[in-house]
Amino acid sequence: MYSRCPHCAKQHEVTVEHLRQARGLLDCSVCGKSFDALRFLSEDDDAVLADESPYPDDQISEKRPQTPAVWFVATNLALLLLLAQILYFEDYRLTMQPQLRAGLDKVCAAFACRLPPYKNLEEFSVSHSDLRVQSDSSYLFSALLSNQAPFAQVAPDLKLSVLNFNGEVIAERVFRATEYLLRPTGLAPEQTVEIRLAIVAPAASIGGYTFTLL
């Protein structure tokens, strides 16, 4: 069997198997354009075109099935749009969810975007805290701060309150992360750092202390 290209009139020999695999479409070896081989099929190798009606290229493009690359690009664009909508409407709160953070990190890595630094105070732990008087009558607050999250976290600020023997606050101060960390960029997963803060002794006697992560 034969089929003639309607664009340049080149005759091509075809088989049933070839037509089945190509879904009836052929690429002309002379002009490089695609055409519907079934439309111009004949048994004679020198047959003229049976259909002389216009045969624009856009008709071929509509019939040609989409390639996997097109679907890949379309899928990635859809994912990027979805991520943009999530960050726009939910913003910071949603990116701080540990159940979603790992997936969002992977998506952002693929599209070269940046999520806000992770910070979840519930995933910090403080141990071995102590407030001791020094030889110069000042006080030293010390503690161990651990990041228990599976992600790096921004180091929190710390509010230290000094109490009298009646449990009343007699002095209070917020210490920034830059005041107790040499590199306050954050804590790696499972990292523990030591906090050491020098405190000037208040006029009243100290009966206790409290601290809060901010």
Rank of each mutant, 00 (worst) to 15 (best):
L115A: 09
V154G: 10
Y139K: 02
A109K: 08
L77T: 07
D51Q: 04
L158T: 05
L81Y: 12
K159C: 07
K33I: 09
A50S: 05
C31G: 13
V107C: 07
R114D: 08
A84Y: 00
L160G: 00
N76E: 06
R101F: 06
N120L: 01
L115G: 11
S127M: 11
D157C: 09
A78F: 12
Q59C: 11
F35I: 04
F89V: 01
F124H: 05
D45K: 08
A69F: 12
Q134F: 02
S127T: 08
I86C: 10
A69V: 07
L131K: 07
P117E: 02
K119I: 01
A84H: 10
E52Y: 05
A69W: 06
L158C: 11
I86H: 10
G103N: 14
D57I: 08
D51E: 04
L121G: 15
F40V: 06
D45R: 11
S42G: 04
G24M: 09
Q85S: 05
Q99L: 06
L41T: 05
L82E: 02
P116C: 13
D157V: 08
V70L: 15
L26R: 12
A50T: 12
F124Y: 15
P116L: 01
Q99T: 02
T75A: 14
D46R: 10
D105I: 13
T75W: 10
P56N: 06
L79M: 14
H18P: 04
L82Y: 09
P117M: 00
S138R: 12
S129F: 03
L80V: 15
V70D: 05
D27T: 14
L144K: 09
M96P: 08
K33V: 13
L41S: 11
V70Y: 06
E123P: 04
L49C: 06
A69H: 15
D136H: 08
V133D: 00
D136V: 13
F72G: 01
P65L: 00
H128V: 07
R101W: 09
S129W: 00
L82P: 00
K119V: 06
H128L: 13
L77K: 14
D57Y: 02
L160N: 02
S142H: 04
Q148Y: 11
D57K: 04
G32W: 08
V16N: 12
D130F: 12
R39H: 09
T67A: 12
Q99Y: 01
R64G: 00
M96R: 10
A74E: 12
Q134P: 02
L94D: 06
V48N: 11
H18S: 15
F40G: 01
L38I: 03
R39F: 11
R39N: 03
A149H: 14
V133N: 04
D46G: 06
L131H: 08
L81R: 08
R93I: 14
R114N: 13
C31Q: 05
L115S: 10
E43V: 13
Y139F: 15
R23G: 15
E90F: 15
L145H: 03
S125Y: 12
V73A: 15
